[in-house]
Each structure stands twice: as C-alpha cells, then as structure tokens.
C-alpha cells in the first residue's frame, strides 16, 4: 500500500501553510521597509502589503495549527474504498 503512504506524506494543509508563510513574510517585509509614498497614495493611505502580509502570516499559522492538532492519519476503513473500486 505504497499509495496510502504517499497520501500521508502529502498534506494539502501543510502546502497551504508553507505558501502563505512565504507570501506573508515577503509582503510584511515589503510593507515595513519598501513602501513608497506613491504606494500609499494609490490606496488612500493604507499600507496594503503590510496588512495583507500580517493577515497571510496569521492564515499560515492557522493551517499549521490545524495540521498539528489533527494530523493526517491513514484511515482505518480502507474496505469501503476497495469495494467501490470493484463496483
């Protein structure tokens, strides 16, 4: 059942956590250090990168927590899937 093990290694929530951690980090840095007056004027004074960056870091954290609290387990009931495949 190599198939099952492969599914276990590959948790979508982890991928999402990673993606938003990277995005959040980059945006926060841009927001803090590289925001120009022109950027601020565009958005009527809102630092879009900073806020979205912090938001994405929070989302990444939530996904990571979810993985931590409810880790992916190999389902015990593999029987139904097998019978469906035969049908």
């Amino acid at each position: 059942m190599a198939e099952k093990r492969a599914a276990g290694l590959f948790d979508l929530r982890g991928v999402l956590a990673l993606l938003f951690a990277v995005y959040g980090f980059v945006l926060t840095v841009l927001g803090v250090a590289f925001t120009t007056q022109a950027d601020l004027d565009k958005a009527a004074g809102v630092n879009v990168n900073l806020w979205m960056g912090l938001g994405m870091l929070a989302v990444a954290l939530l996904f990571a927590l979810w993985v931590r609290l409810r880790p992916l387990t190999v389902p015990e009931g593999e029987q139904p899937e097998q019978s469906e495949r035969d049908a």
């Binding site: 945006l27 565009k42 958005a43 879009v48 979205m52």
Partner: peptide, 11 residues
C-alpha cells in the same frame, strides 16, 4: 492597477 502596490500586485 489602480490600488495595489508591488508585492500584493504579484499575488
């Protein structure tokens, strides 16, 4: 084009 700064634009 009118609202987002570089960075958020990429996303």
């Amino acid at each position: 084009r009118d609202l987002l700064p570089n960075g958020m634009l990429g996303i």
